[in-house]
């Protein structure tokens, strides 16, 4: 697990106030929503805000695209890295 992945997992647990789960228990490529971690639409809004606050990420106004970035920890890592690079 890379540092960024770990950081994202910690961000998710902290931002969403999740309990009974350690960062190591979140699987990098497991779905975050519905199945897997079981997050909901409010969590999606919170993650969007946290990404903006911590990484200065602006979400593109295109829901399809956004949903793809939010699908897993790996997808979030790719989003953060791509914005760091640009």
């Amino acid at each position: 697990m890379s540092d960024l992945q770990l950081e994202i997992k910690q961000m998710i647990i902290e931002t969403l106030d999740l309990e009974d789960i350690e960062p190591a228990e979140i699987i990098d490529d497991e779905p975050l929503f519905v199945e897997g971690l079981g997050l909901d639409s409010i969590d999606a809004l919170e993650i969007g805000l946290a990404l903006q606050k911590r990484y200065g990420i602006k979400l593109k106004a295109d829901s399809e695209d956004t949903r793809e970035h939010f699908s897993s920890v790996n997808a979030l890592a790719i989003l953060i890295e791509s914005q760091r690079a640009s």
């Binding site: 999606a44 593109k60 106004a61």
Partner: peptide
Amino acid sequence: QWQYTEDVYSR
């Protein structure tokens, strides 16, 4: 129906 406020802005 739009889920994100970014969508609202772009619409």
